[in-house]
């Protein structure tokens, strides 16, 4: 996969106005997050659900269309 320049990533994230003086620190933090992401790219099974699956509650009685 081609390496994407940090400035291009900054632009894509909408952070063009991010102060110049903090950009080196940001890049360093992003590199550590990239490494974290690489470490957890495991061989997940199709059925492995995330921890925050979508849940609904039943509609409360007495609400909805009146007949």
């Amino acid at each position: 996969m081609p390496e994407i320049a940090f400035l291009d990533r900054l632009h894509a994230a909408g952070l063009d106005s991010f102060p110049e003086k903090d950009r080196a620190a940001l890049e360093q933090t992003v590199q550590s997050m990239d490494a974290a992401a690489a470490r957890i790219r495991l061989d997940f099974a199709f059925a492995d659900e995330p921890s925050n699956v979508f849940r609904l509650a039943p509609a409360a009685r007495g609400t909805g269309q009146q007949t």
Binding site: A13, L15, F18, A25, M33, D34, L42
Partner: peptide, 28 residues
Amino acid sequence: GALARVRIGAGAFISGTDYVNALRLRAK
């Protein structure tokens, strides 16, 4: 402040797939 700016700003660079995979590993 500079510290919050950097720490929060870095979250913009994590892909959706990596976020969901983190939640999948969390369940395990």
